[in-house]
Design a protein around this nucleic acid. Structure first.
Lengths: 328, 328
DNA sequence: CTGTTAGCGCTTTCAT
DNA sequence: ATGAAAGCGCTAACAG
């Protein structure tokens, strides 16, 4: 038991163990030179007093906070909670924690400032972009930035994303091969690189194969996608590629409401593979993004940058997961 | 422009502005006594050099880190991302950030240790509980803990939750008033206070009104709930209360697959009001938890504890949101 | 209002 | 292997 309301410091432990304060510090530092016997004594005293090293103080001198800033846009898109969990696990493995900043919208730049003040060891920006001016400032301060699920031309930031162009092509190829000719693309937010690439790949491949592609704006959200698809159904396509799974669900719901059966009358393939894609009510055929690998790659890039390596750009392939929403 | 690869400190700014280092500190402290003219000069120098105060150093002396630990269980339950966003917004308003620890399962205690080392100003534990030993240690260190969406008997932790018992009663009353008699409760994880309270209230009120209640185990997950409900449908109930919205969706899907129409053959009411509850495919009648208010209350409790007030227990009522899944 | 002076709790040379 | 001492970058008295 320890006295109430008193922050136990390494000095307290030192006194209790009859050693110097630095001996205590060493006992808590992996691979420091302490006599095993000393260390045991120190650890005993420490746990008796309920001592835990103060990471803030340590960070101040070691110049690494053990914190990684995660700047994330729309947590309500079920893709991102999965990403968050993956980052939590991956970062814990390298003994770092997440400083999470859910950014309302747009004002990423301001938010990055806050994160920098916390002396984070790196920053992950997901579902948003930051100005190149700020990217440069991060670089100057030696704080690696990796853009997750977005690409950029800023030379100082690393990026990790799915091969969206390839995914779009794969879907087009798959649908056309199954005999579909009138294709509909339900787009995400038009300014996101993710959406742009998926659309580009999908259209290019479809065009090459002689299939027509119409595009409606779904903005990555259920309600907008539902409305857009409903409107598009006046001239029904035979297959839909939705830029994320939420909009895939919206497409299916809109089709059913319109009296169309999925997949008999309409094939639906969506990007992402969140929890609801597997629900019995949807059974959505999807392109699964390799979230775990993407996150692992992002963490690697962060660490690599910490070692002074140049920012890289990683693209991982998505994989087609066939379920019941597409007649292939 | 500033020199590459050099962390700008307040001393650098002081020199550049021709003032003392403390003048710089004051210029960045709200309500400190600095001549306006001095402050402008300092701020100018600071922004020229790209200076940002180092929060770590500040925290070390001010003894508040500006960090709140958020320990969260299942991010994949769509209820929690919404909670996270709300906390992000509410905490930012009091100038604090989130140290997010997604806890795999169970090992909350170990995780709290990490959080404590970061000198957090408080800890929010959502969808999990912590041992009372650890709760006591937090208290001793003066770090307020609030349990979110869980209750406990530990005297040192505050709690915020929905009035789950009341919600259960409300649903039973509503369902029975609409003529339903054979009720089914799709339970969440049996050891969560949340589930226990909902079930207790639902059963008590149903019993009082002379309606029968069967219970199946859904574990708060889609797949288990789908299987459990499917099995229960061999002797169909007329109404279902699902302990969360995901299981509500599972119930609807299971019913439809079984050839039952919702709400004609089966009324479904669920707890929580996540994004998909409003989807056209489900149109789920729900008890909405007042997330924003709950989060605001949690933040208040954190701040109150910081001022030395005793831990309180707050319960906010849920509200019935009628949509199309229940015949009322 | 401003500068000087102590630390916050820890890591890290540098001697011993 | 250990202790003494010098900071990490900042805030907070305390004089002036």
């Amino acid at each position: 038991m320890t006295r109430a309301n008193h922050r136990v410091t390494s000095l307290d432990v030192a006194r209790a163990a009859g050693v110097s304060q630095s001996a205590v510090s060493r006992s808590f530092t992996a691979g420091a030179s302490v006599a095993p016997e000393t260390r045991t004594r120190v650890l005993a005293a420490a746990s008796a007093l309920g001592y835990r090293p103060n990471i803030l103080a340590r960070s101040l001198v070691s110049r690494t906070s053990g914190l990684v800033g995660i700047v994330m846009g729309h947590l309500t898109n079920p893709f991102y909670p999965a990403v968050l969990e993956a980052f939590g696990a991956a970062l814990r493995r390298v003994d770092k924690r997440m400083l999470l900043i859910p950014v309302p919208d747009g004002d990423v730049d301001q938010v990055i400032g806050e994160v920098l003040q916390h002396q984070v060891d790196g920053i992950v920006v997901a579902s948003a972009t930051l100005s190149s001016a700020l990217a440069e400032e991060c670089a100057r301060q030696g704080r690696p930035v990796v853009l997750f699920n977005r690409t950029t031309t800023a030379p100082t930031v690393a990026t990790v994303s799915c091969d969206n162009d390839g995914a779009g092509r794969l879907v087009a190829r798959t649908l056309v091969a199954a005999g579909h000719r009138r294709l509909l693309y339900v787009a995400g937010t038009p300014d996101s690189s993710t959406n742009v690439e998926r659309e580009r790949g999908f259209r290019a491949e479809a065009a090459a194969l002689g299939a027509a592609v119409r595009v409606v704006a779904g903005l990555y959200r259920y309600d907008t996608a539902f409305a857009a698809v409903t409107a598009a159904l006046t001239q029904p396509p035979d297959a839909v590629f939705a830029a994320n799974d939420v909009m895939g669900c919206a497409t299916i719901d809109a089709a059913r409401r319109h009296g169309l059966a999925v997949p008999e009358d309409l094939s639906v393939i969506a990007m992402d593979d969140g929890p609801m894609a597997a629900w019995a009510g949807y059974d959505l055929t999807v392109i699964r993004q390799p979230v775990t690998d993407m996150v692992a790659a992002a963490v690697d890039l962060l660490l690599a940058a910490g070692r002074g390596e140049a920012p890289a750009h990683i693209r991982l392939p998505g994989t087609l997961t066939e379920r019941g929403s597409a007649r292939l």
